[in-house]
Amino acid sequence: MIRYDLVCDKNHTFDSWFTDSAAYEKLSAGGLVTCPHCGSARVSKAIMAPAVKRTDRDQPALPSAPAGAPAESGPVALLSEKDRQIRAFLRAVRRHVLENAENVGDRFPEEARRMHAGETEERAIYGGASLEEVRALHEEGIEVLPLPRLPEEGN
């Protein structure tokens, strides 16, 4: 398998996988390689940096094949150690809040105001609030923090 960075005549860039360079040439000549943005069949290979495995580094090379393709054996580092530590910390913070605070849902701004005004006992809460509601709480001197959203929640 080979991946090419491609560009259409309207300068849209994208990439695509092919069995080999001959497969790309055949499909391109037949007008079957089209831009996903505008549908143009006037597509050419963009300038690419070759993926060359370095032997002078301790880190393993990133995979160059698509998901599901046979991979070389050995560990692959997709995140640096520092990134893994940060994500682990964010997961721990989120888990702590979910286990130790009360979910007040969309009532969060009102509950935070009631606690700040002394109308109800202070306790750990979390819930939903719009950006405007959060700004208003900050302007009122009420300290709130966003609950970290984990990267896998967006996938």
Rank of each mutant, 00 (worst) to 15 (best):
L150G: 03
R149P: 01
E81D: 08
L78V: 14
S80M: 08
Q59P: 14
T13S: 06
G141A: 03
E25A: 08
V7I: 13
D106F: 07
A101S: 13
N11L: 08
R57S: 10
D56Y: 11
V144N: 00
A136I: 10
V97Y: 00
E121P: 08
E99M: 07
G127S: 04
V93K: 03
P109K: 01
V144F: 00
A41V: 15
A51R: 10
G128V: 14
P148W: 01
S44Q: 15
E153H: 02
V144R: 00
E133C: 13
F18E: 01
R42F: 15
A124Q: 05
T34Y: 07
L27C: 10
N103R: 08
G74V: 11
C8Y: 00
H37C: 12
L137Y: 02
G74M: 02
V97I: 10
R54I: 03
H138F: 09
A117Y: 07
E110P: 13
I86C: 10
A71N: 15
V104C: 04
M115E: 01
A124V: 14
G74C: 03
P60K: 13
C35A: 06
A69I: 05
L145N: 02
D5H: 11
S130D: 13
R91C: 11
R113W: 05
D20Y: 09
M115N: 00
K82A: 15
K53I: 08
A88I: 14
G31F: 14
Y4D: 09
N103Q: 13
A46R: 09
G141N: 03
K26Q: 15
R114T: 07
A41K: 14
E25Y: 07
H12V: 01
C8R: 00
P151H: 09
L6V: 06
M48P: 08
E119V: 12
Y24D: 07
E140P: 01
P50V: 14
E143M: 15
E72M: 13
R135C: 15
A101C: 05
T55S: 09
L27Q: 04
A67T: 03
Q59F: 04
A129T: 00
R123V: 02
P148H: 04
D15I: 07
G118K: 14
N100C: 14
S21R: 14
S73A: 06
R113Y: 14
M48L: 06
A88K: 11
T19R: 05
L6D: 02
S21Q: 12
R57G: 03
A23V: 03
I86A: 04
S73F: 10
N155K: 13
A67F: 05
S64Q: 12
E122R: 15
F108D: 04
L78M: 11
A65Y: 06
E102T: 14
L27T: 05
G68C: 01
A69W: 05
Q85E: 07
C8I: 00
A112P: 01
P50F: 12
L150N: 12
